[in-house]
Simulated assay, not measured.
Amino acid sequence: MKNVGEAPQEELATGMRSDHPTRQRVARSVLDHGPSTVADLAARLGLTHAAVRRHLDTLVAENVVEPREQRIYGARTRGRPAKVFALTACGRDAFDQSYDSLAVDALRWIEKAAGGGVAGEAAVAAFARDRIESQAAPYREAVEAAAPEERTDALAKALTADGYAAMARSAPGAQQGEQLCQHHCPVAHVAERYPQLCEAETEFFSRLLGTHVQRLATIAHGDGVCTTFIPRTGSPGDQHGTSETTTTPSASRSTAGRNPA
């Protein structure tokens, strides 16, 4: 959600300027109190009605809130019901809902339930691979429908549709191949603790594209972009060619989830 600079003194009904991102305060008030009218928000936040409407217009345009007709319980009064503004699903996602903490707790439980140590790590890895496979269908369809030379780009577009902001580009320098770059990772905070998530994703890319791939960087490791090198078919780095082979977990684990030495 964007935090745009605030307008001058009309912002506060008291005439004082706010030091906080007012637009985010408006959205947060809707989250805390449910669907709200302009008058409700103005009263809670000490803003003028005009200021609230201006922020709501922007939040509606950004798909953070949406206008609805106020529900009337009991006898209707004369006149049109007041319009209320409610958070959209996108708006709720903009707030921290502790999903990362929940995911880490769940994986920690899996790790301990399996006995910890190597067995625990293996259990988390098995979960990560199963998670990837359960989401694999759209990616397989996109890649299988593309020409061989366009498969990395097709995968990037399918990942982008799932929120990974991915792109494919030619590998720089003397590398014969492409780089798959993911500018966003929805599970980055969880993968910091459990790199098995990155490793499972790398293994999946390898199986999907039918070639050995190498993870060069990950957001979870502190890099700005998750970057995977995909060798061009027939190049020296292509260990499997285009045949339908499965990369073993150890083949990807050396680099996935962390930068190679």
Rank of each mutant, 00 (worst) to 15 (best):
Y194P: 00
G46E: 02
L31R: 15
T242I: 10
L87P: 06
P195Y: 06
P186F: 08
A168Q: 08
P67T: 05
S170F: 08
H183I: 03
A42T: 01
R53G: 02
A51I: 00
T248M: 10
E203H: 02
V213W: 09
D238Q: 05
T22D: 09
A161L: 10
T233Y: 12
P172K: 14
H189Y: 10
T211P: 02
V26D: 04
H33G: 07
A174Y: 11
L41V: 10
R92T: 08
M167F: 06
R80N: 10
V4L: 15
F85A: 03
P260K: 12
R44K: 14
T245D: 07
P8A: 14
A168F: 03
D130H: 12
R108H: 12
A154Q: 09
R151C: 01
G163M: 05
D57P: 00
H33P: 01
R215F: 06
D100F: 09
L47H: 12
V26C: 07
C198G: 01
G234Y: 08
S235N: 10
P21L: 05
A27C: 05
G115V: 01
M1R: 07
T14S: 15
K157Y: 01
G91M: 00
P231I: 03
A119Y: 07
G116N: 06
I230E: 00
G46I: 05
A146S: 05
G34R: 11
S243H: 13
Q24T: 13
E201I: 03
A217N: 11
G222V: 10
H184I: 15
A27N: 04
G116E: 08
H212L: 13
T37K: 02
